[in-house]
Simulated scan of single mutants.
Amino acid sequence: MPVPEVATRLAPLTTLRLGGPARTVVAAPSAEAVVEAVRAADTSREPLLLLGGGSNVVIADEGWKGTVVRIASTGRAVEHGENGSVVLTVEAGEDWDGVVAACVADGLGGLECLSGIPGRTGATPVQNVGAYGVEIAELLLDVDLYDRGAGVVREHVPAEELGLGYRTSALKGRDDAIVLRVRLALSTDATSAPIRYPELARTLDVEPGSRVPAAAAREAVLELRRGKGMVLDATDHDTWSAGSFFTNPVLPEAEAPEGAPRWPAGPGLVKVPAAWLIEHSGFRRGHPGPGGRVALSDKHVLALTNRGDGTTADLLALASDVRRGVQERFGIELVPEPVLVGCRI
Rank of each mutant, 00 (worst) to 15 (best):
V26A: 06
G268Q: 08
V90F: 13
T311E: 04
R329Q: 03
A215E: 12
V212N: 03
T188A: 14
D42F: 15
I345E: 13
Y197T: 02
G291H: 06
T43L: 15
N83Q: 11
A41D: 14
R9K: 11
R17G: 05
G122L: 00
V57M: 07
I136P: 04
S192Y: 09
C343K: 07
I117D: 00
R293H: 08
P2D: 08
L180G: 00
V157C: 06
R181M: 05
L18K: 00
L141D: 08
E79S: 12
V129T: 13
P213G: 08
G20D: 02
G163F: 04
E79I: 12
G107H: 05
K271G: 07
D189M: 10
K271R: 15
P208D: 07
L340I: 08
S115E: 01
A303W: 10
A123C: 06
T235I: 09
T8E: 07
G20K: 03
L145D: 00
L48V: 11
H237Q: 13
G268I: 09
A274S: 05
E207M: 14
V179E: 01
A102K: 12
A256Y: 04
S244T: 04
G292I: 10
T124M: 15
T239H: 01
A317C: 08
H300E: 00
P261Y: 06
V143T: 03
L51M: 01
G165Y: 12
R76Q: 14
L140P: 00
P273H: 10
H156P: 09
P208V: 09
E255L: 15
Y166C: 05
P264K: 10
N128A: 04
P264L: 12
L302C: 04
T235H: 11
G122N: 00
A215L: 14
R344S: 15
G75R: 07
R167N: 00
P267G: 15
V57C: 04
T67N: 13
G308R: 06
V322D: 01
G286A: 11
A60P: 06
T312W: 13
I178R: 01
A7I: 11
V250N: 07
G325N: 02
S73H: 02
A234Y: 12
G81D: 09
A40D: 14
L222V: 02
P2E: 09
E199G: 13
V301L: 02
A7K: 10
L88R: 09
N248Q: 07
L48F: 14
A27N: 05
S210N: 07
V34A: 15
V90A: 12
S192T: 06
V68T: 09
D147Q: 04
P288A: 04
E328T: 06
I345F: 15
I59Y: 08
G133R: 07
D175A: 15
D189P: 04
A220K: 04
P338W: 04
G20L: 03
R344T: 14
L180I: 01
R285L: 10
R45F: 15
H80S: 13
V99R: 10
V34F: 10
A256G: 05
C343N: 05
C103K: 08
A33L: 02
D298R: 13
P213I: 03
L111N: 01
Y146A: 02
W276Q: 05
L111K: 03
L162P: 00
D42K: 11
A193K: 13
A319Y: 01
G209R: 08
G119P: 02
